[in-house]
């Protein structure tokens, strides 16, 4: 009996070794673009990989396949969220991570509430719930300072050295990142430093792109 278990164990490790060898050859049949199988970068000392689900039979099912949510509140947002704010697609989000976020000059902001962020977000994103940017939050200025604003002697904020901020939420039907963008603009954040990933989690998941749960990132 022991020998059988031993053989099973051997079989398992044999499988592991074999799939390890085969894996890379099969791994990237679903690339991000022709030139880019996967995107790798380092954000805050943490290695990040963005790639696509390699299961070519994978489908969006259940609620994310849903076409019709009540509007209001789940209304379709325009391509241009506000004058001067640049709208991003997935490749631009990846590029934003690789260039600005990696370099410390930008931040990818998940505008959703914490429990939704905890369930899965774009790798490298920082959770800044829209409500924390509202004018009624006494900590808002502190957050703005953490985003690179400088407080002058009279308490006024100087955004000239502020980070570039790219925001997203659940998708084109989600109001949370547009709302966060409005709050930032109202606070004086320069529009040219703001970026809107309109597709949000809906489009990110629809393309099978990598998702992380922040709690497991360590």
């Amino acid at each position: 009996m022991l020998r059988v278990w031993g053989a099973c164990l051997g079989a398992f490790f044999g499988y592991v070794a074999l799939s390890g060898a085969i894996g890379p050859a099969m791994a990237q049949d679903v690339a991000i673009t022709e030139q880019m199988a996967r995107a790798e970068m380092t954000v805050s000392g943490r290695a990040i990989v963005i790639e696509r689900n390699q299961d070519q039979s994978a489908r969006i099912e259940d609620e994310f396949a849903k076409t019709s949510r009540a509007c209001p509140p789940f209304c379709i947002h325009p391509m241009q969220v506000a004058p001067g704010v640049t709208t991003l697609g997935e490749l631009e989000v990846i590029d934003f991570l690789q260039t600005r976020v990696s370099a410390g000059s930008g931040i990818l902001m998940d505008s959703r509430l914490p429990e939704w962020n905890a369930k899965g977000t774009i790798p490298g994103a920082v959770n800044v719930p829209f409500a924390t940017l509202a004018p009624n939050n006494p900590y808002r200025d502190e957050i703005l300072v953490a985003l690179g604003a400088r407080k002058g002697a009279g308490g006024e904020l100087d955004f000239s050295g502020a980070l570039d901020v790219a925001l997203f939420c659940n998708g084109p039907w989600c109001d949370q990142s547009p709302r966060a963008i409005r709050y930032l603009l109202e606070a004086g954040f320069p529009a040219e430093k703001l970026f809107y990933y309109r597709g949000g989690m809906q489009d990110w998941l629809m393309l099978g792109l990598s998702v992380v749960r922040p709690a497991e990132q360590g």
Partner: peptide, 14 residues
């Protein structure tokens, strides 16, 4: 939330 945000911003990308 604000505290979590600040913590995230200070230890995170910023």
């Amino acid at each position: 939330m604000s505290k979590a945000v600040l913590q995230g911003l200070r230890s995170g990308a910023a």
